[in-house]
Design a protein around this nucleic acid. Structure first.
Length: 658
RNA sequence: GGGGGAGUGGCGAAAUGGCAGACGCGCAUGCCUUAGGAGCAUGUGCCUUAACAGGCGUGUGGGUUCGAAUCCCACCUUCCCCA
């Protein structure tokens, strides 16, 4: 059990960071306590299936790694010579290397350590085990550190070849992972290789590299190869050997094919006040009894005192603690542990969708209407905690009949981290209070600025100065939208205005769908400038001008909702701008009759030419060659190649004519 | 150590095989102003040049291509994640 001495509570593996409590940074120690778990491992395989999720690959990879499914073989090494009737269970994904086992290593916490340690080694082993108990798992498994181990003095038998190999204790083996014991194959595992060299153990090649001449290896050979020194399996490819050896082990009863997971069951007990009480009652006669459904939910008592000993007030609150056994009615005690807060965040979206469910925790009909969540926005830091728990909850609730879908969040986007003073902005450690910014510039300005900082999924650096640009732009919008269009009677700029409108909408909508709000806003800024220019030139009609301003406001609405609404009303509209549809764009109106081609000579830009938009390749190249600065660079040269990229550029490749 | 991002002006950034630096900040000059931490206009990658123009330039070194910030290889720096 991971125990934080400061917070006086247990922690899930996911909540231990670098051996320290995720909340307060205190070094976490190991404690043995009875706890409540959720059986998330029962869903491990289903949780691995993320094919239909539109999530960032990175998050999917992190979840896969966290679940950590590996297929391999469990095999027992007999130790009855030293501990009658016992054997050491080991798990390996490389059963093809089993003939190369030259030692077996136990985790310091392994129950057989005590039984197997021989008298002459006892003092040294006990010291070693005590030392390992003071170190964190991160320290023990760090690859930076040299592997250490100590002999127990005992030996075990490899069932495949009947060999007697030494049993050691090593702190790089964790009791909590796999079987808490590993077989040592120095020739084919780099950690074992280094370990064997250090302690003078045999390094025996059993999977030969191609063209192996029988000499000693310089480092472990990890890839596949040919079985050698492997009895009846010699000559097989190690890929086939894996299956053949596993078959033999299973048919001989020495072990079996096994799937293991890194994921462990979710420890949900917390020794805190602030949490959902675990609905369990302890009765001296009936044992552990769940609170009957009609008595749910168990509510926290309200008038409690918090003492500085860090213990949950629930452990001292008699009115909460004492109750009657639901089965026999005799006096009984409530569980005083509460549920991890990740339990609540695993289904809050279901409750949001059905806020008044009556007797049930949620209303399935309303949940079906609204969910699953189409687009979820959250931080990448939730990859293996909240997001995994939430998926598990959804699947469990589905199996209980509460929801009819498999996944809670169809599409996931990670917003990036905001950095201030070289540290990430966080509500706990480095907060950015929006109030003064809102006070000074308004909520719309702050909102737009956050969108303008950079790509949404990359976050950005907060700076106080850049916000002025957004403030100025919104000021220009305010000005331009309210100009009096009655003096406009022109027509020369109509076509240009229409083009600008449709191009802008195309850019704004495309970028918004890709969560590139920064470039969406840049497009609207350019459009604002264009509107101002057209008004000052007075070369459009009043109607076109007004339509163009409406278009600006409609696209501004999602970004600066208050300002857009106010201007929508001030420009003569009734009803809310937020009930309007976004404008559409006509691709045919985004093009123009003439285009500017860039002209390169040998890939270097030399000039530009204005040509008809539908110009043919030959004509485009001919026009390009006439450009003054191009002619200069190709004069007297032999033309090797001419390239025309329609609508974009011409590249003329030349070399000296000599 | 392993896994995954990122590296472009003074700064935030744009461009994902086709005119590098859009848009914005900052800065400079000018206009307006009794005033400016307001507003407006113009300019602003570096070097050479009176100008036309030319050279250099997207972390470093190589490669592919008519053409590379963009693709490939190696390296450097940095951020995030890690049983």
């Amino acid at each position: 059990m991971n125990w934080c001495p400061k917070d006086q509570t247990t922690l899930a593996n996911e909540q231990v960071k670098d051996g320290a409590c995720e909340r307060c940074g205190t070094t976490v120690v190991k404690r043995a306590l009875p706890q409540w778990y959720f059986a998330i491992t029962k869903y491990a395989d289903e949780l691995l299936n993320m094919d239909r999720l539109e999530w960032p690959e990175k998050i999917k990879t992190m979840q896969r790694n966290w679940i950590g499914r590996s297929t391999g073989t469990t095999i027992g090494f007999d130790v009855s010579e030293f501990a009658p009737g016992e054997q050491i269970e080991t798990f390996t994904t490389r059963i093809d290397t089993v003939y190369g086992v030259t030692f077996v290593v136990l985790a310091p916490e392994h129950p057989l350590v005590e039984k197997l340690t021989q008298p002459e080694q006892r003092t040294a082993v006990e010291e070693y085990v005590a030392k390992a108990g003071r170190e964190t798992e991160i320290e023990r498994t760090s690859t930076e550190r040299e592997k250490t181990g100590i002999e127990t003095g005992a030996y075990c038998i490899n069932p495949l070849n009947g060999e007697r190999v030494p049993v050691l204790v090593g702190d790089y083996v964790l009791a909590s992972y796999g079987t808490g014991a590993v077989m040592g194959v120095p020739a084919h595992d780099q950690r074992d290789f280094i370990f064997a060299r250090k302690y003078g153990l045999e390094i025996r090649v059993v999977v030969a590299p191609p063209n192996w001449d029988g000499s000693d290896l310089e480092e472990a050979w990890i890839p596949a190869g040919t079985q050698v020194n492997s009895g009846e399996f010699d000559g097989m490819s190690s890929t086939d050997g894996k299956d053949a050896i596993a078959d033999k082990i299973e048919s001989s009863g020495w072990g079996e094919r096994t799937i293991t997971y890194h994921l462990r069951d979710w420890l949900v007990s917390r020794q805190r006040y602030w949490g959902t009480p675990i609905p369990i009652i302890y009765c001296d006669d009936c044992g552990t009894v769940p609170v009957p459904e009609q008595d749910l939910p168990v509510l926290l008592p309200e008038n409690v005192t918090f003492d500085p000993d860090g213990k949950s007030p629930l452990t001292r609150d008699a009115s909460f603690l004492n109750t009657a056994c639901p089965d026999c009615g005799k006096a009984a005690r409530r569980e005083t542990d509460t549920l991890d807060t990740f339990v609540c965040s695993s289904w809050y979206h279901l409750r949001f969708a059905s806020p008044n469910p009556g007797e049930d925790p949620l209303n399935s009909e309303q949940v079906k209407t609204w969910l699953p969540v189409n687009q979820y926005m959250g931080g990448a830091e939730h990859a293996v905690m909240h997001l995994l728990y939430s998926r598990f909850f959804n699947k469990a609730l589905r199996d209980l009949g509460f929801v009819d879908f498999d996944e809670p969040y169809a599409r996931l986007i990670n917003q990036g981290m905001l950095i201030k003073d070289h540290r990430k902005i966080s509500k706990r450690s480095n907060p950015l209070t929006p109030d003064p910014v809102v006070e000074k510039h308004g909520a719309d300005t702050l909102r737009c600025y956050l969108m303008f900082l950079g790509p949404w999924d990359q976050g950005g650096d907060w700076s106080d100065s850049g916000i002025n640009g957004i403030r100025r732009w919104l000021g220009r919008v305010w000005d331009v939208a309210q100009r009096d269009e009655s003096r406009l009677h022109g027509s020369d700029g109509e076509r240009a205005l229409e083009r600008a409108s449709h191009i802008t909408t195309q850019r704004v909508l495309t970028d918004m769908e890709a969560f590139k709000f920064n470039t969406s806003i840049a497009a609207l800024m350019e459009y604002t400038t264009e509107l101002t220019r057209r008004f000052d030139a007075a070369d459009v009609s009043a109607t076109s001008w007004r339509d163009a301003v409406d278009r600006l406001l409609l696209q501004l609405a999602p970004m600066a909702p208050h300002l857009a609404e106010e201007l929508w009303h001030r420009t003569g509209h009734t009803g809310s701008v937020h009930l309007e549809m976004l404008p559409e764009f006509d691709e045919s109106l985004t093009t123009s009759e003439s285009i500017t081609l860039a002209v390169q000579v040998n890939g270097k830009l030399r000039d530009q030419v204005d040509v008809d938009a539908d110009i043919e390749q030959d004509a485009a190249i001919a026009a390009a060659k006439l450009a003054e600065n191009v002619a200069r660079h190709i004069e007297g040269m032999a033309i090797v190649k001419e390239i025309y990229v329609p609508g974009r550029l011409v590249n003329i490749v030349v070399r000296s004519a000599s």
